[in-house]
Write a protein that binds this DNA or RNA. Sequence first.
DNA 1: CTGAAAGCGCTTACAG
DNA 2: CTGAAAGCGCTTACAG
Lengths: 341, 341
Amino acid sequence: MTPPKTTMTDVAAAAGVSPMTVSNTYKYPERVQEQTRARVLECAAELGYVPNIAAGNLAAGESRVIGGTIPSMRNSSFYKYVLGMQNCANAHGYKLVLMLADTIEQERSAIEALIGLRVAGLVLVGTEHAPEAMTLLKRSGIPVVESWTPAGAMDLGVGFDTAAATRTLVRLLLKDERRQRIALIVHEGTGSRRFLERVPAFRAELAAAGRKDDLVHFAQETDGFGAGRRALDALLQREPELDAVICPTDIVAAGILFECSRRGLAVPDQLAVAGWGDYELAQEVTPQLTTVHPNASEMGAAAIDLLIRRGQGTIPAGYSIDTGFEILERASTRERAHRSP
Amino acid sequence: MTPPKTTMTDVAAAAGVSPMTVSNTYKYPERVQEQTRARVLECAAELGYVPNIAAGNLAAGESRVIGGTIPSMRNSSFYKYVLGMQNCANAHGYKLVLMLADTIEQERSAIEALIGLRVAGLVLVGTEHAPEAMTLLKRSGIPVVESWTPAGAMDLGVGFDTAAATRTLVRLLLKDERRQRIALIVHEGTGSRRFLERVPAFRAELAAAGRKDDLVHFAQETDGFGAGRRALDALLQREPELDAVICPTDIVAAGILFECSRRGLAVPDQLAVAGWGDYELAQEVTPQLTTVHPNASEMGAAAIDLLIRRGQGTIPAGYSIDTGFEILERASTRERAHRSP
DNA sequence: CTGAAAGCGCTTACAG
DNA sequence: CTGAAAGCGCTTACAG
């Protein structure tokens, strides 16, 4: 049943050299004679030999595999981020293995598995983790970078200033004198810490402008169009005069857009809607969504870069990178073209 | 710089037992005395010990890690599938590690890395792979299941009958006498084999009904709203009388819906639009999309299940499972409620 | 119930 | 440029 896994010794025998030479052929090609190398490679190909990375890591005491956790694949929010990670990792000769972590507990389990695999480093999303996971992480000494979070990383960090993005969004809305009652929707509950950071920024900016800052809606749901629908409903009940809303994601914003069209609420005339994340969807809905572009690809690349340099000792713990953001102003929050007569 | 990784020997020393006993504590708890076990676990926790899975696999000659490749995270199409895989894997004491494979070459690289990691099995999407990857796969003897494909798997397979789904969709459209010019959109190019399977089924069903079957559009783009927009454009130029279209994904279908609303084309009155994949988006757009529900979660679970049972020798190579599909008929293809007067 | 011995597939120094 | 020796952290039989 168990198939004959070709080993380095098999290749060595076939090529008439010692295992060492086979090893060198892969790791230090320059150390072995052109001819010998060619013969080894040929035999390896013929036997379908794939070096046992795990065994190699064990012997060498190092690894070229980086582990990452993704909170969810429910939408495309992490698509470019993961691509950025993978491209950067590959460019440096590393492999990226991913584990899904839809809940804090799943993340703990993923972290444990990845540590068990002795990856070279770990990229996590956010700063909210199971306490046992934090302990393990610290004890293991494995470099870890936390992404999508502007501050508070345990080791390395990469992200953008979500508070600043929130403030910019509020100011953008305040430029339009029609926006008197502005709401903020965030998620609440485990795993939503990185959303909650937006709340104080939202309140501060409104307070600074002398506006009421009481319209914060804490959604129980993590994401989804339905969350938008229900949040809008709840907000309108609290405040029928609601005229602007900042959403936790573009999906939620799109859900609100869809619901507005069902209710006959005009966007942006009666209600301005801002999204978050610059999903592909954002420029496809009507009206197109104003949103926060997170430079996700750069963030992913920066995370891997940090990790690798940290592994080389080039970078101290506590280091973090701000990959910035951009506010994309589109029709869903557009000011009136011509002022009222 | 390199942190002190706690090893089994360290734990053994701390607990005053031999490494063997520590090993047994984890793998065969019943073999070690309650008291001893407790002490070992305590010391392990205190030292932040995480067993080196890689070393364990090497020694035991087996692995509890399953590898999977995902063609893309660009949209949510694989969300439930991956969840299904992960849940099933965890339920059986296995871990699932994922690698992104946006292209055939990336998939080859991922497969090589996963084989290098000596995973217990591999789950791939589709039957289209780099030839070198196929060779490696066969040589390695690692069980592999190919998913999202009804047939043609190299080892194990899981999927549903896409040809049958296509035919059902065509028949559904043909029930409505307004649908005279029906089009099919598919992707073309590397990695799109599983889309192309729909073409002959589409043609056959139309031919059987005595209809013209000339409206197949081969999109160069893999996915995305824009692909829908452009495909619609191209199709309308070829056939101004176009009155129904079957899309490769719900995203493409939504793109067409959005474009229709821009052009003032009424759906479903002037154009029926069918999607594929039952994404969350499908029931959020207006009108709601008729689509193919792929039982993705079941498919993912079945894939893992097959793999594990195959590893146990319970299942022969060549075995495959049909996880079925369901056609969800919604407003985007709805027949007229009351026939014309 | 507990442990000393050998080995998984590879790599690191170190000789030739 | 090539190779014999020791060891990475664990597990498998096998004794006690």
